[in-house]
Write a protein that binds this DNA or RNA. Structure first.
Length: 420
RNA sequence: GGGUCGGUACCCAAGCGGCCAAAGGGAGCAGACUGUAAAUCUGCCGGCUCAGCCUUCGAAGGUUCGAAUCCUUCCCGGCCCA
């Protein structure tokens, strides 16, 4: 099965420029391609994985991937898919964000020397030196405002009260210039991205055709959604980040384990780099006994290892065994140490145990004293597996290994206390 | 600038002098059933030293025994006119 057919079967193709021409180009030999990531935050999130894995899939097929950090485009703000003007981030924040994202962009790809060696680029490198007048002559002259106004992202914004600033209006020119720059200096012939990027990508294809009379290709994937159509990549606590300091490997893995049955097949095809036949086999086993969550576990393990590494995956798994396995009171010391690294934890003195309500609030298992009381009345808390009530004394609960107290709210909210 | 309608808890949205911490829906939290799923059902969903008390209904003043509800001024938004 060739690469395009594989991507198609995985539900990863939303749109492309001339499909026949692209297929012909891909089969004629290695191609260089890029996917851009703007530094809107100091970490990428789960949704970005589709784009990152796009590069990975091409690299595995022998092509050369260019992950791009949007140091320049991030300064301007992409209006695509937004109903209002973005707040500009200050340059220091952007530089910091770029530095964080670059670390993540290097994780999933092979950077060792070879024909398909990945190369990290930052569009600030070639955009910042460009002089305004040169830009207007070398880029602006090849683009008509008529076309730009026709784009959905622009047109929808023209009808709003806030409008669209010239800054954001210009965004697609910068991205188009990126594509042309990479085409001319790195031989990049294909740009991929989410379906919301179609207009920006095609702007680059057009610019390349008009200014240097060459053919470049565009390929977009559908944006990932949840079963209810809600935005993907958000968990209870917010976005699912790739930065382990923001979303721990344990939480990251849990996010995938908790995926609906209704979506797991689709996600597995979109996110797993396993062959489709292997995925079909996993889904087959899952269908026989869905309660075992075979498919969710397979996806969770694969992605956790890919993003956080084998050691982090092992730690997350052993933490999971304690938290969702049997009695936490019988967990080994090593397993509890793993739990401590993966779920929120804190150290308290013995005398602090007497203030149950206060402790529930300070561990963030309750948002206020009232909330703590309510949840206690509703049998929402357990300590080392024992149900707590308003009159419970934590000092009466036996510590595990003489110093651990595992607090749990509901089914999957934990906080580990280490008593000193 | 004139007119007019509106600003209520995380969001939408009732209430229009006491029965209002404020209907209803959504989101969220807990419980039941399950499979760390979905659906369904139940409870909760401002705060507190919790049978009670305190602070809220754009802001500040005022009328009243009593105001989210009436009056004044101001701020913000929709629509119409200029």
């Amino acid at each position: 099965m060739d690469l395009l057919a594989d991507l198609e079967a995985r539900g990863l193709i939303h749109d492309s420029t001339d499909r026949v021409a692209l297929a012909a180009r891909l089969s004629s030999g290695p191609i260089s391609l890029y996917v851009g990531f703007d530094p809107t935050a100091d970490s990428l999130h789960a949704g970005h994985l589709v784009g990152q894995l796009f590069l990975r899939r091409f690299q595995l097929a022998g092509h050369k991937p260019f992950p791009l950090a949007g140091g320049a485009t991030g300064m301007v703000g992409d209006p695509s898919g937004r109903s209002d003007e973005r707040n500009l981030l200050d340059p220091d924040t952007l530089r910091y964000n770029v530095s964080r994202i670059e670390v993540q962009l290097q994780r999933l790809l092979d950077f060792s020397p070879g024909t398909y060696q990945a190369k990290l680029v930052n569009n600030a490198d070639w955009t910042e030196p460009v002089r305004l007048l040169d830009f207007l002559r070398d880029v602006g002259k090849f683009v008509t405002v008529n076309q730009m106004l026709a784009k959905d992202s622009v047109r929808s914004r023209l009808e709003t009260d806030t409008g669209l600033s010239f800054t954001e209006f210009s965004y697609s020119l910068l991205q188009a210039n990126d594509f042309r720059h990479l085409y001319e200096h790195e031989g990049v012939e294909l740009q991929a991205g989410g379906s919301d990027q179609w207009g920006n990508i095609v702007a680059g294809v057009d610019l390349i055709r008009r200014s240097v009379s060459k053919t470049a290709h565009a390929l977009t994937h559908p944006l990932v959604t949840k079963a209810d159509g809600a935005k993907f990549g958000k968990s209870v606590d917010g976005a699912v980040w790739l930065d382990p300091a923001k979303t721990s490997p344990y939480q990251f893995r849990q996010f995938w384990i908790q995926v609906d049955d209704a979506m797991i097949g689709r996600y597995l095809r979109m996110f797993s780099i396993q062959p489709l036949a292997a995925i079909a086999e996993v889904l087959g086993r899952h269908a026989v006994a869905p309660e075992r969550r075979v498919a969710q576990r397979a996806l969770a393990d694969e992605l956790t290892e890919l993003v956080h590494g084998t050691a982090a995956l092992d730690a997350a798994r052993s933490a999971t065994e304690v938290l969702f396995g049997g009695d936490p009171a019988s967990a080994s010391e090593a397993a509890l140490a793993a739990v401590a690294r993966e779920v929120p934890s804190s150290c308290v003195r013995t005398d602090e145990l007497s203030d149950l309500i206060g402790l529930l609030v300070s561990t963030r298992l309750a948002t206020s004293n009232s909330d703590a009381r309510r949840t206690l009345q509703q049998n929402g808390y357990r300590a080392n597996g024992a149900l707590l009530s308003e009159s419970s004394q934590l000092s009466d609960v036996g510590l595990v290994h003489g110093r651990y107290l595992l607090l749990r709210k509901g089914k999957s909210n934990y906080h580990l206390l280490e008593i000193s």
